[in-house]
Design a protein around this nucleic acid. Structure first.
Length: 562
DNA sequence: TTAGGGTTAG
């Protein structure tokens, strides 16, 4: 090699190295360091400029700065144009993106795909479909984007048509289609496609795990999970969350421990899922330690995490701690408000729930269906029947929220608890949709509380029709008969259960005292201190009954007076 | 340039 060329080679190697450093630093989220490398470079090429351009909108989330940077670029290639288009789309600025796209000098398939993906993400499927039709050239990415977009919009059949007409497919295309089926609750189709996949990958498997869990089939989900050769944090999270959502909190926490042992670092979704497990199991200590981990990892600023935290403290009995988290939350979203209202509701703090609801309104936040449910539940917890009916009748006029099955179930529950069966039935009759499981469940519960055999029979019958495999309605009805002394009927129900193969899982509960877990199973009296426990429980229920009577009297008086 | 997981009621 000619010695005079050596410095040029060194300089170009340095350039490449610095460009790589900018990209690496940006990927690690350190925009300032990337900027420093860029500023210190003796010579830059279009790759350097492109690297920082992308970092500005992606890491710095600063679209105006990225656009100024783009305007100042000494030279641009198609990647620069594609990047600024993607930046505008990521920030929801469709007009600016379209303008840059129109000005892009020599568009390649990636320019079209960037625009297509942006339109899909912004939910502009009509525009996306038009663009897809206009594309001079399509590749596997273009088709996959359309499959994903159509499926997300619920048009699974059309998504499948695009998937079938693809000239070639990759693992992403298969995963997108499977996930589309899962999101639209078409598990059979998802299963078939997954089986037909020439080669399975972690993403398709994770989508299937989610699908199985959505159907309540955690066993199949776990089987598939165990078969994943290289698991990543998302697949762990899917399985952990799947356990939590199906009521297997302990399994979720066990799996979390295995995950840590196997060396996978948990992320914010893992912590949220474990926190939800702590809420369900009322494990305050473990919830607190998850909180501590989050403080260390700076997760405390995540609204999503704090919402889960509010629930955890509330469900573990410490509503004042919930309050603290809510107050210190930097940006509260609708879920935060709903969660806090629900926390007050759960703890019988009706006034606080209502004033938070009003504060939300004065701040200009628009309540949603769950806000209304939480407020209804606040009414229900303290027996404010009239207030709940007022809100129920008003919600569609005042908030344009039309009562769904859950709202009906809630109101039936409130009326049922108050023993107002006639009114409850009239609400059921007015329901604009088919009879709902939750609604009959609420009625059945109330029938048991008030010993209403006739309505109990009706509700149980409706429930058995919708889900014949569940023991709940049988047991409940049998208890209603037993309370009424109708032993013949009790035996008849038992016979029916045997005939249909319906078995009751014994109920159980546990509590943690001084690092020891005490477990109680229905019908089992083997705990060494059972007699003491029973006498204490009798005392507590006596006090509860007294307090309930007092509360009812007070509510009745306050409602009479205005 | 395309795919998978996370928060609120009952």
């Amino acid at each position: 090699m000619h010695p005079a060329r050596a410095p040029a080679i060194v300089a170009s190697r340095l350039l490449v190295r610095d460009n790589q450093r900018i990209t690496a630093l940006a990927r690690a989220g350190d925009l300032a360091a990337a900027r420093r490398v860029f500023d210190a470079m003796p010579r830059r090429d279009v790759v350097s400029w492109n690297a920082l351009l992308t970092a500005l909108w992606r890491v710095g989330r600063d679209l105006p700065a990225a656009r100024r940077f783009f305007d100042d670029m000494p030279s641009r290639n198609v990647i620069s144009w594609n990047s600024v288009v993607a930046g505008c789309l990521a920030h929801g600025d469709l007009a600016a993106a379209s303008a840059y796209f129109a000005r892009t000098p020599r568009r390649n398939v990636a320019s079209w795909n960037a625009m297509l993906a942006g339109l899909v993400r912004l939910g502009c499927m009509n525009d996306a479909e038009r663009l897809f039709g206009e594309m001079p050239e399509r590749n596997v990415v273009s088709y996959t984007t359309m499959v994903d977009g159509l499926a997300r919009r619920g048009e699974v059949g059309r998504a499948r048509a695009v998937f079938d007409e693809m000239p070639e497919r990759n693992l992403v295309s298969w995963a997108a289609m499977i996930s589309g089926y899962v999101d639209n609750s078409m598990l059979d189709e998802a299963r078939k496609l997954f089986a037909a996949m020439p080669e399975k990958n972690v993403m398709a498997s994770t989508a299937m795990i989610t699908g199985y869990c959505k159907e309540g089939d955690v066993e199949s989900a776990r089987k598939l999970f165990d078969e994943i050769y290289v698991k990543d944090v998302i697949s762990w999270n899917a399985m952990i969350a799947g356990y939590v959502h199906n009521g297997y909190g302990e399994e979720a926490l066990k799996l979390h421990i295995i995950m840590l042992r196997e060396g996978t670092k948990p992320d914010h979704a893992t912590l949220i899922a474990t926190l939800t497990a702590c809420s369900a199991l009322a494990l305050l200590r473990q919830g607190r330690s998850t909180h501590a981990v989050a403080v260390k990892t700076m997760l405390e600023s995540s609204t999503c995490f704090c919402n889960a935290l509010i629930t955890m403290y509330s469900k573990c009995g410490d509503v004042s701690e919930s309050e603290l988290v809510f107050i210190n939350l930097k940006s509260q979203d609708i879920v935060s408000w709903n969660t806090m209202i629900a926390a007050y509701a759960q703890h019988g703090k009706y006034q606080k729930a209502i004033s938070l609801f009003h504060e939300m309104e004065t701040r200009g936040l628009i309540p949603n269906d769950i806000t209304i449910l939480s407020v209804l539940s606040a009414c229900g917890h303290v027996g404010r029947v009239d207030d709940s009916l007022k809100l129920f009748d008003l919600m569609s006029f005042k908030y344009a929220i039309y009562p769904g099955a859950e709202h009906y179930a809630c109101i039936i529950d409130i009326l049922g608890r108050a023993g107002q069966f006639e009114k409850a039935c009239s609400y059921i009759k007015d329901m604009p949709f088919e009879s709902e499981k939750n609604v009959w469940g609420a009625l059945l519960g109330a029938s048991k509380t008030h010993g209403n055999v006739q309505l109990g029979e009706l509700a149980a019958k409706m429930l058995v029709q919708s889900d014949s495999g569940s023991s709940g309605p049988y047991v409940m009805l049998s208890n209603i008969y037993a309370a009424a002394g109708m032993w013949g009927e009790v035996n008849r129900i038992r016979g029916q259960m045997k005939e249909k193969g319906v078995k009751k899982q014994p109920g159980y509960s546990w509590t943690e005292i001084a690092n020891r877990v005490h477990m109680f199973v229905g019908g089992d009296a083997s705990h060494p201190e059972m007699n003491k426990i029973i006498s204490e429980l009798r005392k507590i229920s006596f006090h509860m009954q007294m307090m309930a009577n007092e509360t009812h009297t007070m509510v009745a008086m306050s409602q009479e007076s205005g």
